[in-house]
Design a protein around this nucleic acid. Sequence first.
DNA 1: TAGATTGTTAATCGATTAACAATC
DNA 2: TAGATTGTTAATCGATTAACAATC
Lengths: 225, 225
Amino acid sequence: MSTRDKKKTSGIPEGVVGRLPVYYRYLVELSEKDTQRISSAQLGEALGITAAQIRSDFSYFGSFGQQGYGYRVDELLTQIKGILGLDRTYHMVLVGAGNLGRAVASYRNFKERGFDIRAIFDSNPLLEGNYLAGCIIQPVSRLEVYLEANDVQIGVIATPREASQEICDRLAAKGVQGIWNFSPIRLKAPDHVVVEHMHLTESLLRLSFRMRNRTERTAPASEHS
Amino acid sequence: MSTRDKKKTSGIPEGVVGRLPVYYRYLVELSEKDTQRISSAQLGEALGITAAQIRSDFSYFGSFGQQGYGYRVDELLTQIKGILGLDRTYHMVLVGAGNLGRAVASYRNFKERGFDIRAIFDSNPLLEGNYLAGCIIQPVSRLEVYLEANDVQIGVIATPREASQEICDRLAAKGVQGIWNFSPIRLKAPDHVVVEHMHLTESLLRLSFRMRNRTERTAPASEHS
DNA sequence: TAGATTGTTAATCGATTAACAATC
DNA sequence: TAGATTGTTAATCGATTAACAATC
């Protein structure tokens, strides 16, 4: 337990949080290729990250390696799965069965990882009763009833912007622990509810900013000194 | 032009890039409410950012305010639109008309902002000829022909992971400047092509990590000192 | 054992914040 | 003018990197 005591600060830096899923994915790949061991140097080479940073990132959570050897891929993967909370199953509800909601509901990649959409709600009466990804679409008015009768950890919001804050409040009031928000709004939620934003427009604006910034400086003395 | 010379470094920090769309959105809101002026302090209050940081962020690009007054909302908005590259129109092609591709094609919010999907490609012959968001779905084999005949700045990739790197290469070879990638892969692209990742799974893993991290430390002496 | 590579400390780098002179 | 608020410099804070003793 020589975990560098950063844990007690209990705020893991954003950069680390962002890199964990990257480690995870690469380790899954290695594991599928039956690679047995990997060093921080090799990992860094493959991911474009310094070896020191990788070791530093891991050390927030424990010591998973062996001097002179490196890391056993399977063991490291198990550890990172645990850290990311992938050693359990999550029950989710989806609110909003529009284009985006349907895409999320049908997305395979996370069902495999234990994220399971158990119920879908929409305010449009025309959608009511339709099936989507194995669920019957229910009217949003039934949201509370469902949440009271079922254990749900994550709410996915894919409603129009006007509705999203209200849905967020209702989900939070019924005790969901996390909200995955696809609506173009910065939701306000109580401290105990984690909100993760999936904001398409912001992403597109970042792209357009970088494109402009790259083409603009057409003839700088050197690209990056 | 007392732009703090940071510009010549020509790398704008990631944090700034991330905040620009946030400023943009809030300014649009203010402008719609016909608010005339705003100070960095008010802006910071509304967005949960320090006033100093906001002024520092703006100063990378120029001086848009007036001492003793603050910022004229409309003028600041115009400036930020320019910085984000929203003063022009982008032609886009979408490759992959699956669930995610269809959602992106139908998403209104960015068509309004000048991001225009002009052609859609898919490798599934069954989809060929179908209409989606006003475009006929074409076979991917026609991608090059289309890109040669039309000026396209942005390619949107919403294909399965196996296909995405190849599509990326083909888009880059035909001179697109930006790629908006929805496939769960870190694409490699030449330096002059900007790649923005929209990775659903990574986002969901971050959510799950934070949920675990928040609930785990159930009884720390104090939540954040 | 000798070689390799970890986990961690110390040094560096960069980003955020505080403070204030400039000035509308 | 007096009051307010900018743009920017200097101080602080935090994250990344380099270095190395510990050790497999």
